[in-house]
């Protein structure tokens, strides 16, 4: 069992979720409430990581963030570090790859809020920020929860993009999925089996807890208008 890889994966998932979910809340809200020209193109762009093979995304990120690229050179000039084969590069890649998993459930959750509710809240004298915190966020909790679980689990199991962009550097870019692949390559099936089981148990438990929580939250906050 490669605890270092498991820890690295958990760290990568947590950092990704912490950065991505707040952004997804605002993007999802914007897409749910606003009508603008080119909206379907924006939505399609957000969905791209779902349909592109991870190796293709990995390739573009490698080219786009590598030391030959403008972004890569700029980051290297200011921080002295490279984005590729580096934990921060993995965070950027994980964020980009997981945008649809974060934005979609949150956007759908915002779309289920009837217009009557924020309207009534505004007429109750609540400011935009208070409506967001006190009314909208509690109502979209199941969507946020789903987004968190999807992103966390997806980052935990991400393989193609990580391998393309981060390679296999222990403690830096060797996540648990890479470690499983490594173990199989080295015919260490016992380690691969243990790590796979850990991921399997984690996935099933998290999904069960999420489903139950969503149902409970959904039932408690069931919108009487529906």
């Amino acid at each position: 069992m490669d605890w270092q890889s498991l820890w690295l994966s958990a760290k990568l998932s947590s950092v990704t979720v912490l950065i991505l979910i707040p952004m997804a809340i605002f993007v999802g809200r914007f897409l749910a409430y606003k009508q603008f020209r080119g909206k379907s193109w924006v939505e399609a762009l957000i969905m791209v990581p779902l349909v592109l093979p991870p190796t293709v995304i990995g390739y573009y990120l490698l080219v786009g963030l590598g030391s030959q690229s403008l972004i890569g050179q700029w980051v290297e000039q200011f921080t002295g570090a490279q984005l590729v084969f580096n934990f921060s590069g993995l965070v950027i890649a994980s964020i980009l790859v997981n945008i649809p998993f974060a934005v979609q459930p949150i956007q759908r959750a915002f779309e289920t809020i009837p217009h009557d509710i924020p309207d009534a809240a505004a007429c109750c004298g609540m400011s935009w920020w208070r409506i967001f915190i006190k009314i909208e966020l509690p109502m979209i909790w199941p969507g946020i929860l789903t987004a968190v679980v999807l992103c966390f689990s997806h980052v935990l199991g991400e393989f193609g993009v990580v391998l393309m962009l981060g390679g296999n550097i222990a403690g830096e870019t060797k996540t648990i999925s890479i470690a499983i692949y490594d173990s199989v390559q080295a015919f260490d099936f016992e380690a691969a089996g243990t790590m796979s089981l850990v991921l399997l148990v984690f996935a099933v438990s998290v999904l069960a807890i999420t489903t139950s929580l969503s149902r409970r939250l959904g039932g408690q906050h069931a919108n009487p208008q529906r």
Binding site: P114, D116, I117, D119, A120, A121, I135, P138, M139, Q220, H221, A222, N223, P224, Q225
Partner: peptide, 8 residues
Amino acid sequence: QHFGLFPH
């Protein structure tokens, strides 16, 4: 029309 009550 549908009262706009805060469901939570």
